[in-house]
């Protein structure tokens, strides 16, 4: 799905999910903006609903399945459904797995949503789009500017999947490859795939705070100037639960791509609880 710069944009369906629609608007806007620059138009599926988050599958598998399925049913045929949040992606793909293998699940889908399920609907996380772009030639022709930053790539639990979903696309190293092509340097560090604690942040902050502090301390000790997250939920947990004195800033992956395109907006960075603007201006990258 690579797209030439000025040609008519390619349209894909888009599922932003609740975090990007609310707490992480900067994640959403930077992703939409970056895709626009790549000639990809993200078209929100009409009237999408919450994928069920961690809570639905935690206490009621049927509600979790139905919530995911309504979104699948709303996605128009013939174009991929691009997702932004790793956990929404997992919920949607898990529902597709059940639909593929369980006639009862397909029956329920048809009864509730009044149409057969589309076995060809390709749910793909936007990492898959970004890794297909030839970033180096875009630097060559001045389309993007290289970013002089050393970063700790933070995937959280994104790379983990249950065995049944393991044949689906693997996203190991995507941030290192893309941002590396954009001139950034990644550090090797121990907490890259440490879970951020997700919903325990609300009911058990006593568990999450030390985890988050260890992750951010580890990133700083590894020589990173910033952390880059794949997931808006991780981004929020790291920022909200950190109690270190001077933590390094945390960017959404999509913000850095927009920054390289020169289309980052100041009000994205002013929404961060750990202010990244001093680092950006020190590096001459002020948006």
């Amino acid at each position: 799905m690579t797209a030439a710069g000025r040609a008519a944009p390619i349209e894909v369906s888009y599922f932003p999910g609740c975090s990007l629609a609310t707490t992480a608007k900067e994640n959403n806007q930077s992703l939409i903006e970056s895709c626009a620059r790549l000639g990809i138009r993200l078209v929100e599926i009409p009237d999408w609903n919450c994928c069920g988050s961690s809570s639905a599958h935690s206490i009621d598998h049927r509600i979790a399945f139905d919530l995911a399925c309504r979104n699948l049913a709303l996605a128009p045929a013939g174009r991929p459904l691009v997702t932004a949040c790793p956990s929404c992606t997992l919920r949607l793909k898990h529902a597709q797995h059940l639909l593929r293998h369980d006639a009862g699940a397909r029956g329920r889908y048809e009864t509730l949503w009044g149409r057969p399920y589309d076995p060809d609907l390709h749910v793909r996380h936007f990492f898959g789009l970004m890794v297909e772009i030839d970033w180096r030639s875009r630097i060559g022709n001045g389309d993007v500017v290289p970013l002089d930053l050393t970063f700790a790539p933070y995937y959280g639990c994104m790379l983990n999947r249950p065995a049944a979903l393991r044949p689906s696309t693997d996203h190991h190293g995507v941030m290192e490859r893309v941002l590396g092509d954009l001139g950034m340097r990644s550090v090797l560090w121990a907490s890259s795939t440490q879970c951020c604690g997700t919903f325990l942040t609300v009911a058990r902050p006593d568990i999450v705070t030390p985890k988050v502090n260890a992750i951010l301390q580890n990133a700083a000790d590894s020589g990173a100037e910033c952390v880059v997250t794949a997931c808006a939920m991780c981004h929020m947990n790291l920022e909200v639960r950190c109690t270190l004195k001077a933590p390094i800033p945390i960017f959404h992956f999509s913000e850095l791509i927009a920054l390289a395109f020169g289309s980052a907006r100041r009000d994205w960075f002013s929404r961060h609880l750990i202010d990244p603007r001093p680092l950006l201006s020190r590096k001459g990258l002020a948006a």
């Binding site: 609740c18 919450c50 639905a56 206490i59 919903f199 325990l200 058990r204």
Partner: peptide, 21 residues
């Protein structure tokens, strides 16, 4: 407390179709 949180998330989805944090 963990169960109470999950229930509130589902309550929000039932009411709005999305989570209202």
């Amino acid at each position: 407390d963990i169960l109470a949180f999950h229930r509130e998330v589902l309550h929000s989805i039932a009411r709005y179709g999305r989570t209202h944090k």
